[in-house]
């Protein structure tokens, strides 16, 4: 039996009718056409499908769409555009923290959730925050640099 759900995604309210076995990841990618969120392992280990639900990173490949009813969801499309990138996105590009790019959306959302709560994280706190996001290209060094750079700029802007 299908269920009607309603959630806010990237600031937009959406009503959808979904089967109980639909996963949030597939609804985001296929029904809503937001393909920035990636399907990686499908078992919650790689973090490529990370989205923010009520501000907290979760793996959308293990989230039932019906359980996202009445929640607020943010995907990579919701935080910046090519014309107006989010500071983290800009810092990732400038630092060379993006190679193949597959992990980048999830990585940036995990980093955003960290910086929203902790604008001045230590290196260890950054590592813990992105421990659930696997990158097979960069070796993480540039990613950590990018997050530090973005944090610095975002703190400056608030002052």
């Amino acid at each position: 039996m299908k269920k009607e759900i309603e959630f806010t995604i990237n600031g937009e309210r959406r009503k959808l009718i979904v089967k109980p076995n639909e996963l949030l990841l597939n609804v985001i990618r296929e029904d809503l056409g937001l393909t920035g969120t990636k399907y990686g392992c499908g078992t919650g280990e790689c973090g490529a499908c990370t989205v923010l639900v009520d501000g907290e990173p979760v793996v959308s490949c293990l989230t039932l769409a019906v359980a996202a009813d009445k929640k607020t969801i943010t995907t990579i499309e919701g935080i910046g555009t090519s014309e107006n990138p989010y500071p983290l996105q800009l810092a990732f590009v400038e630092t060379g923290a993006v190679q193949c790019g597959f992990c980048t959306p999830g990585m940036i959302l995990s980093a955003k959730a960290l910086l929203d709560k902790n604008p001045n994280p230590t290196e260890n706190e950054i590592k813990q925050a992105i421990a659930g996001n696997l990158c097979r290209c960069t070796g993480y060094v540039k990613i950590i640099e990018a997050i530090k750079l973005a944090a610095e700029r975002m703190r400056g802007r608030k002052r």
Partner: peptide, 15 residues
């Protein structure tokens, strides 16, 4: 068996 979708259908309850 893939991990992209949930194949089995079920009835869903939210008590």
């Amino acid at each position: 068996m893939g991990t992209r979708i949930l194949l089995n259908d079920f009835e869903y309850f939210e008590p």
